[in-house]
Design a protein around this nucleic acid. Structure first.
Length: 459
RNA sequence: GUGGUUUUAGCUCAGUUGGUUAGAGCGCCUGAUUGUGGUUCAGGAGGUCGUGGGUUCGAGCCCCAUAUUCCACCCCA
């Protein structure tokens, strides 16, 4: 028997880690619910056809496919097999796949349940997703997303509320310095339109998205590689290097995009979101200073059509810890037209890594066992059983050491599990009916009747 | 998909030009203490050196393959 191991990019979660992970999930869920979002879940696997074609060519490659059951090779066309073309053969040997994100399954859900849903439909979903990526810092092959989306409402109030949701959840998690970046796909389209290369919008956004990493010169090189001329770049330069406050950026953009109705529409949308946000925070002591218009923000997904979000922490070097945006026609791929939606996602695993690095997890809110009953011998064990049940009936987390072991060992067990109290039951205690309650932190011991112990521990 | 990197005790890691029986710290077990943990002291257990081949009289160390870790690119949470 060889040593067991785990597939690449996957992890076990220990009891200690689960407490921390649940803390993150609960904090985010609480905010989602507060803003009117209700939880749903979808299966881990979807039909392969539901997922393919939704994430671009790169994304499709990263989908984990599930092999068909039974004699899946026997049914494949001979010629196809002989051609050894994996891409063409895939659809013959695999018809299911693990979900790649939560948004596409959600779109599928909306289409399938359209008759029972009342719109606008606000849902949140916290489940793992899988990507056949190469793992690296902050990147796993199985990780959790925390998504909130609303479909059936074009109002930019939704976008504004997502800004508040991001802000509230991250502040509640203890993060101090983070940036919520916002951009609008229509502005990007407008820019591409102005320089007369609307068909190159994807190449343009991919290139300028890297400004942070490779600088203006690097972006220039990449733009040229992707088919832009020096004249195009001269036109793009003031846009890419846009600086100043959000209001100043918007003013400059209005001039650049003066002749693009699409671009102006994007600017107007951003302004509306900003207005909503400021009105929603009027009575808040702290204004939203973390919201920043970033024209270089592109995001890879093909389906975004309006506002785009991305959240980064400035306290730790880490990829984005959240992202999202508006998609005007996501459900169109499944046959339900003209249903607009907007959503955001928290990357729980990255947030975990960030909180860990910054030591921001609260010192365990004592969720474990509160009291351990020692076990000296068979007689003491029998004596302890009704006491154990009495403690539990008062909602006190209690356990009886399951074997008559040395007290040293039992106290060591309580110490390891950070159980704050131990009840000692021996001959003396059974005779007097007064049990010994030991406070593990101070070491102090008291002789108390069971009712007194319950009173003390329940408080 | 591309390039680099890691793997030796439960954990973190040493291990010289290829040479006898592969080490340390922490943890674990036992005892000092037959009913008192987190401190101390004494003793003990624990290894197919990631896996499979190869070179060699001899491999933890060299070569090949493969898995895995971490990192960068692509892309992305």
């Amino acid at each position: 028997m060889s040593k067991p191991s785990l597939p690449k990019g996957t992890r076990d979660f220990s009891p200690v880690e689960m407490v921390k992970r649940n803390y993150i999930f609960e904090t985010i869920k609480k905010v989602f619910r507060k803003y009117g979002y209700a939880e749903i879940q979808t299966p881990s696997m979807e039909n392969l056809a539901t997922l393919t074609g939704k994430y671009g060519d790169e994304g499709d490659k990263l989908i984990f496919k599930i092999l068909n059951s039974g004699d899946f090779l026997g049914k494949v066309d001979e010629q196809l097999l002989a051609a050894r073309n994996s891409q063409l053969t895939t659809s013959q040997v695999s018809e299911k796949a693990l979900r790649y994100d939560l948004t596409v399954p959600f779109a599928r859900y909306v289409v399938m349940h359209q008759n029972e849903i009342s719109f606008p439909f606000k849902r949140f979903q916290i489940q793992p997703v899988w990507r056949a990526d190469r793992p690296q810092k902050g990147r796993y092959r199985e990780f959790y997303q925390c998504d909130a989306d609303v479909v059936g409402s074009a109002s930019l109030l939704n976008e504004a509320e997502f800004v508040l949701i991001y802000r509230e959840a991250l502040i509640n998690l203890g993060l101090k310095d983070f940036t919520i970046k916002i951009n609008n796909r229509k502005i990007l389209s407008g820019i591409a339109e102005i320089i007369g290369k609307p068909e190159l919008i994807v190449d343009m956004t991919v290139a300028i998205d890297k400004l942070d990493k490779i600088g203006f010169e690097g972006v220039t090189n990449e733009l040229i590689e992707r088919g832009f001329t020096q004249a195009d770049i001269d036109q793009l330069k003031p846009v890419i290097l846009l600086e100043g406050s959000n209001a100043e950026k918007l003013e400059s953009l209005k001039q650049v995009l003066a002749t693009s109705t699409l671009g102006l529409k994007g600017i107007e949308e951003i302004e509306t979101v900003f207005n909503y946000v400021s009105r929603l925070t009027t009575h808040n002591l702290q204004p939203v200073t973390q919201l920043e218009l970033d024209i270089t923000l592109a995001r890879g997904l093909n389906y975004y059509t309006g506002c785009i979000f991305e959240v980064k922490t400035n306290e730790v070097a880490m990829g984005s810890i959240g992202g999202g945006g508006r998609y005007d026609d996501l459900t169109g791929m499944f046959g339900l037209k003209d249903l607009t939606g907007v959503g955001i996602s928290f990357g729980a695993d990255r947030i975990y890594d960030v909180l860990e690095e910054l030591s921001l997890f609260p010192v365990s809110a004592a969720q474990g066992t509160k009291v351990l009953i020692s076990n000296f011998d068979a007689a003491a064990e029998v004596y302890a059983l009704p006491i154990l049940q009495q403690l539990r009936s008062h909602d006190i987390a209690a356990e009886l050491y399951p074997a008559a072991a040395k007290l040293k060992k039992q106290l060591g067990y309580a110490d390891d599990k950070k159980i704050p109290y131990v009840i000692l039951i021996g001959e003396d205690e059974m005779k007097s009916g007064k049990l010994t309650l030991k406070d593990m932190q101070s070491g102090a011991q008291q002789q108390l009747a069971i009712a007194e112990i319950v009173g003390q521990l329940a408080g």
